[in-house]
Amino acid sequence: MRIAVLVAVPLLVAGCSHDIGSQPGHSQTSTPTSAGSSASKPTAGSATPAAGVPISEVIAWIEAGRPADPARYHSVSRDGVTTELGDDIAFTAPAGKALCLTDAKHTGSALACLVSLTNPPPAPATAYGEWKGGWVDFDGVKLQVGASRGDPGPFVNGNGPELAERDSLSFGDYRCRAEQSGLLCVNYAHQSAVRLSAGGVEPFGCLRPVPPPDGVGMAFTC
């Protein structure tokens, strides 16, 4: 009788172990494979984010670009003359569709760009001087399109090197990724972003349209 009991116990344990391992619910708790987890992430060649998508998707798409070396983008050139910018950054989007730079001395942390817009905003009644409909200022909290300029401002010394298609450039609170379709830049500090292309200027994140101040064509703010 004692022998029968000792034999039965191992059989019972073995049977329970088999039942737990074969339950469908337990197979779902396994850690996803690296292939499965990467399938949903943007790749360097994935389509640009659509208007209105969450800022997290915009950031993921920008970060999927090939990292460019910031050391290459600290100068501008015009007519064969190169001007060093120190800590400031300057770059040109593919095909010259957007010229962008920072000018910490005069504009703080703002990113300024000249964009070749197909339909730039018209000059408002409050504009004076030469109207630049493709002038864009983006500091993370505010995004303004169109400006009255009597001079080229920070672009006076020329343009920065081209940021290659599918490359992303990180500087300060910003990261920008270039594509043939345009340029997309995020400001991490304020979780806002902007897409610049010939077709227009598209805000993301906390940016919402507001009445533009005097001398500005369009304005958005967080």
Rank of each mutant, 00 (worst) to 15 (best):
C176M: 01
H106S: 13
P121F: 09
G96L: 06
A39R: 00
A44M: 03
T29P: 00
R78H: 13
P10F: 03
K105I: 11
S17L: 11
A44K: 00
G217Y: 15
P161M: 04
I59E: 02
L99T: 14
G134K: 04
Q191A: 09
G217K: 11
F220W: 15
V141C: 01
A104F: 12
I59M: 03
Y128P: 01
V76A: 07
D87S: 14
L183A: 01
A112C: 05
P54R: 01
E202G: 05
K97T: 15
H74D: 02
W131F: 07
A110L: 09
G36I: 03
I55D: 05
P32T: 03
A8H: 04
A14W: 10
N187L: 11
H18W: 14
H106K: 13
A14F: 13
P67A: 10
D167T: 02
E130F: 08
V194P: 08
F155M: 11
G134F: 06
G217T: 08
E130K: 14
S37R: 07
C100D: 12
A219C: 08
E57L: 00
G108K: 14
I59A: 04
A35W: 04
A4F: 12
Y128C: 03
M218H: 15
R2F: 15
E179A: 13
P211C: 11
K142Y: 10
I89N: 06
G140C: 09
A123D: 13
P67T: 03
F171S: 14
Q144R: 15
E57Y: 00
S197Q: 05
E202S: 12
L117H: 10
L101T: 08
V7D: 05
T221G: 05
V115C: 11
I3H: 14
A127D: 04
T48Q: 12
I20K: 05
M1N: 10
L207P: 09
L196R: 08
G129N: 06
V156P: 07
P94F: 01
A39G: 00
A39H: 02
A193Y: 10
L12P: 06
G36T: 07
T83N: 08
V115K: 13
P42S: 00
Q28H: 10
P161Y: 08
M218Y: 15
G133K: 11
T33P: 02
D88T: 12
D139C: 04
V136N: 07
E162N: 04
S40T: 00
A51T: 14
T33G: 14
S22P: 00
F204G: 08
A50Y: 02
T82S: 10
